[in-house]
Computed example of a mutant assay.
Amino acid sequence: MPPSRGNPAPRHDMSVILVTGSYDHEIRFWEAWSGICSRTIARTGEAGQVNRLAISPDKRLLAAAIHKKINIYEIGSTSSDPIATLEAHTGNITAVCFHSEGKWLVTGSEDGTIKIWDLRTSQLFNNYDNSSPVNDVVIHPNQGELISCDQAGRVKLWDLSQNICQQELTPVHDLPMRSVTMAADGSLLIAGNNKGIIYVWKLHDENSGPPRFQAVTKFRAHNKYVTRCLLSPDAKYLATCSADTTVKIWTMTHNWEFHEDKVLVGHQRWVWDCAFSADSAYLITASSDHTARLWDMSSGESVRQYNGHHKAAVCCALHDGAG
């Protein structure tokens, strides 16, 4: 994140990429520390809200899930026109993430499929039938597996090399699982559902066969929807966003239990999305109150608010690490 409060980042500093998307059909780039909007992609006349955003590992591309399609934008450009548009989903796209090398893009959709795209050709490379609307997808840190969650209440681990689902976790059938996150070392898997319950699984290495996850705990994080759950890069924090307008920060004890560390209060409506800084010291959140906020994890205080969207801000992306 920016170097210090007294030394804001230069106006065109590309070391920190912060982007938000909204139901107002706009994508906004922000100077993280000053709060100034440095660029707006206004999709005038184009149908569909911006659902999810992802920044490529090299900070060159922005993938925006817009209703049933994905627009790929060049971050260093001033043009509002995408350099590619990926179309094959027949339902709302709910997840988008880049593979570590930036050559592949993974998307999940309410059409019940997970798709892998080759960004070098802008063509569909592979398709997985989940048989239920997909709510979230993340790429395993080993880059060889995907983890998804869906409306049927399932968390699935997909093996990319064998094109199969190698493990299915279903705490409660037909209770939608809203969001999924994984520790950077692949040892911990966490998901949150529509009832505000968080489920935690740890990696269990068996003597034979592939490693599998086993349940270790569950707890109620909120009394309403969990819209997003996210582990910090250092796995010190778990952030849970909710329909109750709050973001809660949890820390894990030595016996896999989670303790409520802070409640981030300031948003006036649902909080839809969040993103940690690379050093886990800051959190960005996006809310239906039209704003995004920057939070200091040490104090739990909101240190910057990003104003400019005219409707709900429902997604955000942050990349302040090495490009």
Rank of each mutant, 00 (worst) to 15 (best):
G144C: 09
K218W: 03
A47C: 06
S77H: 06
H290N: 14
D159Y: 08
A191W: 01
S22N: 05
T44H: 12
K311N: 15
R228K: 14
D174R: 13
L119I: 00
H319C: 12
A322V: 12
D261Y: 13
T181H: 09
Y237A: 04
C37K: 01
F29S: 02
W295C: 03
D111H: 07
L124S: 07
S148M: 06
Q268S: 11
M14D: 14
A9W: 00
I66P: 08
G91I: 01
G6F: 05
S208E: 13
H222F: 04
A317V: 06
T217I: 04
S302D: 12
N92G: 07
V314C: 15
R5V: 01
V134P: 03
H254Q: 15
S22T: 06
L53N: 05
D111G: 07
V180Q: 04
I249V: 15
A191I: 03
N130H: 11
H309Q: 08
A183S: 15
D129I: 13
T113I: 08
W201S: 07
P10S: 04
G209V: 05
D244E: 12
H290A: 10
K311C: 14
C37H: 03
I83V: 15
G323Y: 10
V155P: 02
D289P: 03
G192F: 07
W250V: 08
L61Y: 15
V155L: 05
A235V: 09
G153W: 00
A184F: 06
A63P: 01
N7E: 09
N142T: 08
G186W: 03
H309A: 09
S109K: 02
A281E: 11
Q166K: 13
E26L: 13
A243I: 09
N130G: 12
S208G: 04
L175Q: 10
A292Y: 03
